[in-house]
């Protein structure tokens, strides 16, 4: 299978700050790959390079078989890009925005409407509302529609669900799954770890480096650690106490409880006794299923 996106050794520096450090990975055609990392990891810089807005200091990248530096003009007709910030004309209506972007790419809205119909069926109820007056979720749908109207081969989405409510976020991911069915390659970034599970494959990025690329299941399997949920009456002293235990490699908040990653010789009953000796009450420790977030913390921790 050909790679729709192929990134080889991309490095980008802003002065003394290294935004991307020798990044290499690829996305096969028709795949949805999630680029997961915290804010400031270098996700947007990578998008700017792939969308030809920025030239890398070193390395090469191809999108839809075209080089991002040499064939930058050709790439622009093949990609659909949705920047992190809403980038449509707020004073134009829903329909005007859609027709404007369609005509820029020399296509008719009607010709590609089948592709965006599932996204647009809600929006089509108010075609004459100005884009600026739409809700956050609706804006994202309109932006996705405008990015898709020229039937791109590759869809590049930079944090499309930031600032969108949970229901709209879920709907948005359903739409991406539909688009993937139609054979569009999708590179989507997010800092919500729960969304990562919905990607076929995940690239973990932190501080400009790719930590790992794999399916969500494989990544979690490869966690290779014992993860436990821990709770007690007083959570903060618990956190400090856990960090003082030698078998606990890592301890961090996870929702309302704490997660600990431990050595194999960790015995929960023994730990509860020791924690109680330290004056903690109502201590509970039970095994947990590690997920992407645990993995991420492990990988990011190793890098330091």
């Amino acid at each position: 299978m050909n790679n729709a996106i192929d990134i080889r050794g991309i490095t980008k520096k802003y002065g003394s700050l290294t935004a991307l450090d020798n990044v290499t990975f690829s996305v096969p055609e028709g795949m949805m790959l999630g680029l997961i990392g915290p804010d400031g990891a270098g996700k947007t810089t990578l998008y700017r390079i792939l969308t030809t807005l920025l030239s890398p200091d070193a390395g090469t990248a191809t999108v839809a078989g075209l080089d991002t530096v040499k064939d930058y003009k050709g790439i622009r007709a093949e990609i659909g890009y949705m920047p992190e910030r809403f980038s449509l004309y707020q004073d134009l209506t829903v329909n005007e925005n859609l027709h404007f972007f369609a005509s820029l790419f020399g296509v008719k809205v009607e010709d590609n409407y089948d592709l965006i119909a599932p996204i647009f069926h809600q929006l089509s109820k108010f075609p004459n509302r100005r884009a600026g007056a739409l809700s956050g979720g609706m804006k994202q749908k309109l932006a996705l529609g405008c990015a898709l109207i020229h039937r791109p081969k590759v869809l590049l989405l930079d944090e499309p669900t930031t600032g969108v409510d949970a229901v709209s976020r879920s709907e948005f991911w359903d739409m991406l799954a539909t688009l993937k069915e139609k054979g569009i390659t999708i590179l989507v970034s997010t800092s919500y770890m729960d969304e990562a599970q919905r990607c076929e494959r995940i690239a973990l990025i932190d501080k400009g480096r790719i930590l790992d690329v794999n399916t969500p299941e494989k990544l979690v399997e490869g966690l290779g650690e014992h993860i436990y949920n821990v709770s007690a009456e007083k959570m903060y002293p618990l956190l400090e106490a856990l960090r003082s235990l030698p078998e606990v490699k890592n301890c961090y908040t996870f929702g309302a409880t704490l997660h600990i990653a431990t050595e194999s010789g960790f015995h929960p009953a023994d730990a509860i006794r020791r924690l109680s000796d330290m004056g903690l009450t109502d201590v509970k420790i039970y095994p947990a299923n590690g997920d992407i977030e645990d993995l991420f913390i492990k990988l990011a921790g190793n890098g330091e």
Binding site: K73, R85, L104
Partner: peptide, 13 residues
């Protein structure tokens, strides 16, 4: 400032 220039810059214009 509104970011619309991003969409213009990645278009074939």
């Amino acid at each position: 400032e509104t970011g619309t220039i991003e969409a213009m810059n990645v278009s074939p214009v």
